[in-house]
């Protein structure tokens, strides 16, 4: 069977949602709000690998609400360090394996609500999340998806000459936006940097500004 387009799936899922208490996922979120999300995983194979950490921050207009962040460690044994324990106050003994990730997903869904999700190669993160959400509510995430690398491509290469080398790497994108690199491989930092890129790119689009060809920076208004 061909994969259904998400929009169609969304319509379909509205009726197949197992637990109707999750109906809020289909309600539109607060206006002008999105959630930037990033997962740290044990590998890149969705069927075999697991989520270690999942982090999300809300973005309201041009403001990144790091004060209302969501961070959870699903596989503490893979990330057993003081930082993780401090952030989640979850110790291994608290919740066992499967129940832990189910609880995290329930919390995550409530945190996100109906807001669109923003991510960098979001498809992968969402696939990872879907894998864990499916047993819970029998549907995939119905939220609208905003792909930051696409926004970047459009602002940076939208009028690319044929044959121009295209580099959509995360590091390159942040560099061209002048956003300082935080410690990578920390889901929260990645989510924050993604959110920073999102607000900057969104503003460039609104103002009709593109990256200048010569300097690796935006060309100002």
């Amino acid at each position: 069977m061909l994969p259904l387009p998400r929009r169609l799936k969304r319509w379909f899922h509205r009726f197949t949602l197992a637990d109707q208490s999750y109906r809020f996922l289909f309600e539109p979120g607060p206006e002008d709000e999105v959630v930037a999300v990033d997962c740290e995983t044990t590998g890149l194979d969705v069927s075999k690998d697991d989520i270690i950490t999942i982090a999300a921050v809300k973005v309201r207009g041009n403001r990144i609400l790091t004060s209302e962040k969501f961070v959870a460690v699903a596989r503490p044994e893979a990330k057993m360090n003081a930082e993780a324990i401090k952030v989640h106050r979850l110790l291994e003994s608290d919740v066992e394996g499967g129940e832990r990730i189910r609880q995290i997903m329930r919390d995550f869904l409530h945190f996100v609500g109906g807001r669109p999700l923003v991510g960098y190669y979001l498809e992968f993160d969402v696939a990872m999340i879907d894998k864990n959400v499916l047993p819970l509510i029998q549907i995939e995430l119905p939220n609208r998806m905003i792909e930051v690398s696409e926004m970047y491509y459009e602002r940076r290469y939208g009028n690319a000459q044929p044959g121009e080398q295209i580099d959509l790497s995360f590091v390159r994108m942040l560099h061209e936006l002048g956003i300082p690199m935080l410690d990578q491989h920390d889901a929260l930092n990645d989510a924050i940097m993604t959110a920073e890129a999102y607000v900057a790119l969104k503003d460039m689009k609104e103002r009709g500004v593109r990256f200048s060809r010569r300097r690796g920076e935006s060309s100002g208004a």
Partner: peptide, 12 residues
């Protein structure tokens, strides 16, 4: 840190 947000501001 728990209280900090990040703001984006366009030129001008």
């Amino acid at each position: 840190r728990d209280a900090i947000d990040i703001g984006y501001f366009r030129p001008g």
